[in-house]
Design a protein around this nucleic acid. Structure first.
Lengths: 327, 327
DNA sequence: TCCGGTCCATGAATCGTTTCAAACTCCCTA
DNA sequence: TAGGGAGTTTGAAACGATTCATGGACCGGA
């Protein structure tokens, strides 16, 4: 059976309170005592019972994170950022996936509440102000990813997607591409809408008429969908000379399918993606894309929670990464 | 503040014991009482305090999983499999990453011990028999992924990698490719060694001499490394007609770089990968590869834990997926 | 009417921590 | 010598759920 603080106390010849002090406020314990207690801990292989600690303290030194898909390429850097911040802050993390399913999101939130986390980072699916308030009432702070929620105590961290969109199309314009197409998704989640909004805006500034822009909508941001989009473009007869995909996966699929059909990228068609996920750099034609600082984003979110901040909103700047697909 | 079982009891006009019974053994509670209690729970928005439950019961209904990299493509299906099994079994999951770092692995195990999980699924880095025994002493069962450990109570689930390797090269042989190269990693973790072993074996059976097989070793199983491997092949002057990459990421990088250099796949070079990760299907030339049933693997691991099994070893069969890159 | 059995509900004890008021020990100063 | 601090240590009271021995209510049969 696992050793408890009481046995450590007996072994070291002190009271349980002292052992607890050694664990939590070592500075108030006399040197000699502390050494003795630490030795006892070592000998017994004592591990603190986090359940008891959480029960007593009301909440632990643990953060919960809910993303749509842990395994997807978008989560990769986020994971790294959050883990780095928590490692240095001495917090533990519980990762959860919602799969974009409101019901699952609810269950994960229940789970995190039950675990007594001290904060949650959520890429929201159906999360609403009520739930944020309920978490708040249980002393759990919330940070939203890429979405703000007014009238709540939730903080948020996000990327300036309008700016990202602007960067993408401005680059196509600078390359002298006049025939521009967008590949997006339908339905279009808010961040994607903002990207496309920014992209359109920057084209407008360059004197393009909105009707001039061919927009193709696929159902999901996947490489398969990008492939389908490419085939639809090919069917039109004349190809656009510049394409902005609102997601790198779409761009990867598109570039692959176009390449397979003998289209030269970037000579015939310049393609800009969005996200700078890992496959973007290793695509047949390395992808020009808009990098989102997702690791900093994750780290920032974690830090907000560890600082017990509320209602703070951070916006990070995206950055254009020029590779072969549009240069 | 969050409502406790006591307040629910007061509101429903029953004792705490009864509320607990409604939660855990609804059958022993009279219909009318149960309805009243459930109503009270609903009204108060009561959520069970998992910390208290875990403290009292000794261990929770939670499993811990430690993988090297949650964000990588290999984890994707595993995540899905484990989550599916746990969802139906009523267990919760705590995901952790070790980054392949022994120290981090240790810390994650400490964390899971502290959380009072009832079992752990580990893709081991430096985990040894001692640690398994220590977990065991704390009533935490262990399932290892893709590795067995003798002399312990740990169970394991894995794929028959020798067989996977055999499938890969047998296919190249059947395509009539005589000049075969391997792309592997150095150092070579056990599963990879087994793959290559099986691959060599099946070539031997087909009458190839081992010296006949050109082997290229890269440091990591990444797309960049695959690219480098391709360049090394190109430098040799004459290309092999068949290549087996021990990892899909290597294969993707290789296929991309070869394609960029005008090599026709599969006409000039047939390429077989390993793993059937998502990018394999959406590569410029869709990849022929060996599928590992990683979702079933994850589900099986979770089920072993939920059944409180010990010392059971499951081996799942890999499967050849033929796509364009070798057909 | 009494007994035995079934069905439910009760509430105190328990899990392993943290917290905090109280006590104890020295040592210094008035 | 008394009194006051500073520095340590103590031990009992939480935290919120589960468990289980105990007992009450009710019914049927003798």
């Amino acid at each position: 059976m696992r050793a408890s603080i009481r046995e450590v106390a007996r072994r070291a010849g002190v009271s349980v309170g002292t052992v607890s002090n050694v664990l939590n406020r070592p500075d108030v314990v006399a040197e000699a005592t502390r050494v003795r207690v630490l030795a006892a801990i070592e000998e017994l292989g004592f591990v603190r019972n986090e359940a008891a600690r959480t029960l007593r303290k009301g909440s632990g030194r643990t953060l919960g994170v809910i993303v749509e898909d842990l395994a997807g390429p978008c989560a990769a850097d986020l994971v790294r950022g959050v883990e780095r911040a928590c490692d240095t802050g001495g917090y533990d993390i519980i990762w959860c996936t919602s799969d974009g399913d409101p019901e699952k999101e609810r269950r994960r939130l229940d789970f995190l509440e039950q675990q007594g986390v001290s904060g949650v980072i959520v890429a929201p699916v159906a999360l609403d102000a009520d739930r944020v308030a309920r978490l708040r009432a249980r002393d759990i702070r919330t940070v939203l990813l890429d979405r703000r929620m007014s009238g709540t105590t939730a903080s948020s961290v996000g990327v300036d997607h309008r700016q990202g969109g602007r960067l993408a199309t401005r680059h196509l314009v600078e390359l002298g591409r006049h025939d521009i197409a967008f590949v997006t998704t339908e339905p279009e989640p808010p961040p994607v809408r903002q990207r496309r909004g920014g992209a359109l805006q920057s084209l407008g500034q360059a004197g393009y008429a909105p009707e001039q822009v061919l927009t193709i909508a696929e159902q999901e941001p996947t490489a398969q969908a990008g492939q389908r989009a490419a085939r639809r473009l090919l069917e039109f007869g004349t190809l656009p000379t510049g394409v902005f995909c609102v997601d790198d996966l779409l761009a990867v699929g598109l570039v692959n399918e176009l390449t397979r059909n003998g289209v030269k990228i970037p000579q015939d068609v310049a393609v800009v993606g969005y996200g700078d996920i890992a496959p973007a750099a290793t695509c047949v034609v390395p992808l020009t894309t808009v990098r989102q600082p997702r690791d900093e984003l994750g780290a920032a979110a974690a830090e907000l929670l560890m600082d017990e901040a509320e209602g703070r909103h951070l916006t990070l700047a995206p950055e254009l990464v020029v590779r072969d697909s549009a240069s």
